[in-house]
Nucleic acid binder design. Sequence first.
DNA 1: TATGAATGAGAATTCATTCAT
DNA 2: TATGAATGAATTCTCATTCAT
Lengths: 204, 204, 204, 204
Amino acid sequence: MPYRTTDRTRDKKDAKRTAMMQAAARVFAEKGYHAATVRDVVSAAEVAIGTFYFYFPDKETLFVYLYEETADFLLRAIEQGLRRGDDLPGRFAAALQSFVNIATYEPAVVQLLLVGGVGAVPALAESRGRFRNDLADLWQDVLDEALNRGDIPSQNTRLTAQGLAGAFDEIVLHLLSLPEPSLVAAAVIQEMTAFALRSAGYKQ
Amino acid sequence: MPYRTTDRTRDKKDAKRTAMMQAAARVFAEKGYHAATVRDVVSAAEVAIGTFYFYFPDKETLFVYLYEETADFLLRAIEQGLRRGDDLPGRFAAALQSFVNIATYEPAVVQLLLVGGVGAVPALAESRGRFRNDLADLWQDVLDEALNRGDIPSQNTRLTAQGLAGAFDEIVLHLLSLPEPSLVAAAVIQEMTAFALRSAGYKQ
Amino acid sequence: MPYRTTDRTRDKKDAKRTAMMQAAARVFAEKGYHAATVRDVVSAAEVAIGTFYFYFPDKETLFVYLYEETADFLLRAIEQGLRRGDDLPGRFAAALQSFVNIATYEPAVVQLLLVGGVGAVPALAESRGRFRNDLADLWQDVLDEALNRGDIPSQNTRLTAQGLAGAFDEIVLHLLSLPEPSLVAAAVIQEMTAFALRSAGYKQ
Amino acid sequence: MPYRTTDRTRDKKDAKRTAMMQAAARVFAEKGYHAATVRDVVSAAEVAIGTFYFYFPDKETLFVYLYEETADFLLRAIEQGLRRGDDLPGRFAAALQSFVNIATYEPAVVQLLLVGGVGAVPALAESRGRFRNDLADLWQDVLDEALNRGDIPSQNTRLTAQGLAGAFDEIVLHLLSLPEPSLVAAAVIQEMTAFALRSAGYKQ
DNA sequence: TATGAATGAGAATTCATTCAT
DNA sequence: TATGAATGAATTCTCATTCAT
């Protein structure tokens, strides 16, 4: 998912800012935070280097923006997926479908989000924490609902949610490492769903 | 008497190499790959900068060594844990105990292993792939054994293993982010075990 | 008003580039390629070190540029000298006058061109080959013309031209090693001319 | 001509010193003074780095030794050639034969002597001056003798000698740049001799 | 707003040299 | 004599950032 204009970028007229964010997404995904230079970003966006500093205070801040917007985008997509289903299996399947769609469409950006960046940018630790938390919230909400309905046994739904978030990342990252992810995506989604249901103790 | 490479000399050399590796582990864990300079490492190890380049070809190679040794160490610890138990619950519990022990003892290094470094060092992508693979192998072996015994239902044990590996990382990283991990470690291990057993579909 | 690349800006840029080249010529001539540091060059040019790398890709490339421009300058001066005379003696005398003028005016740079640099900069081997070739071409052209006019006997004019090029270098370098080159320059030019005429077998 | 034991190396038992000098000749010829490291030299000589500093005060001094011994060797070979002939043509031909022999046998070392090194090692300027002087002395002696015999017209034999020294260098270096120097060596020697005789004004 | 020339702190790395053994 | 581990000054080059235009 290349950078997409969210509420954070109000000014829709501002094509340059958007161009730079999109360029940054590409460049950071391709080279990693440190290897990617501000010059790479502005070259890709076809603006001058001075322009960069008119729109962003510095390279690190841009990266944090990018991380957060990418995280937001993914969270929202998963959230919408969860709403699409009506029972636990349907919700898991739809949400994982969304996740995998995005991951196969923009593998580099997703990888950056899931394993890159952290460690490179200290300021990101906090953002990452928030992202993982929000992600767990998402899964926990459906689990709690299922718990209330009596579809899953009593458990620490927070921990289950965290476990699922980690499990999905691992499986999706492995999927991306295959030569043709799209060929097996459907099967993987199905098995991930089965895994998730077992993890939650879903009966029948 | 001409200079001889005595045992004493060799021992001293090994000791210095080890000291530098340990110093590097500390420094990289604290600052991340890029922010940590070779000068930081040699200061921490109390040797001259030239000494660094006598032992290691460059900063990146040292980092890869460090990553691989840390990964090996963790893998071996988990493997030993798995051998300690006799049924699936016992094995999971013992292996997770080992994992959590190491993570709480050397949180920074484990964090570096699990979320740092990748992206910063291209050469690490391969090492990381191998590590995740080996880790999945470990969990898969016990799952396959349980499957053969009829303790868990038919399933794609590879995918379950990957899911567990990712789930454990996420939960342990979250544990490390708490103010006093050791206070809840025992409870978390127990719940992770329960999660793992459910994920595998373990009956009874 | 957005920034525009005006003529004034461009001129200033050219001026800075030229200043750096001249500073580099001085520094390299004084210290030799390796002993001269990029810092020496930028100090002499009174710019920051980053400015150097804005104008030139690296130290070696600058040196090659410098070598080639100096070689060009010398070649052009000799060529003009050759055109000034009308017969062989007149042409030799005028060309050698030009050569010696430049050599006494910029002794260090000429020495750098004739004996420095090669060996230090592998990339220079090719440039040097081209320079010696062009130089031989110059002398050969006049020799061939004299041969056609019947002023000199049949001979391998290429080899004669190479010999003259080498001979002039040696004599001029020796001249530069004297305490007061300018005092004997006129006499040396005359004797070099006589040497050259004999070498070509010029009659009368 | 790899380094050969002269009176400068009295101690013929000292195989290590000789090995290092020969290794140095090879290494410097191949890489140039600065690119060649002391480590390269000792590796090639198969001794330890400490040993180097037992035999030579430093890298620069070794290089000067090498330059001087190589120069000596070449001078002596030319001198012997000059003695082999009995008239000017015979002497020139024999001396040039010696020069070309050495040059084709050890091209890299001769190139190092003729165009390398200077500029890299300030201390070499003096050695080079002495070498060029000695070389001119050699040619001048035969010219003076010919002058006394009345074989050549009155002239500044010093300048002629310098010119010849330079001319020969240029022609030989060009010869070495050809793909198969040995195939044309004989013809080049003959033409160089003719050139030299014309330059001296030798009659008939 | 937009530009890009200019800056310089700071990083990795090299390599001649020393010296305890 | 001989060794090679250890040193650290010195060098090249990068790149985020500034600012006059």
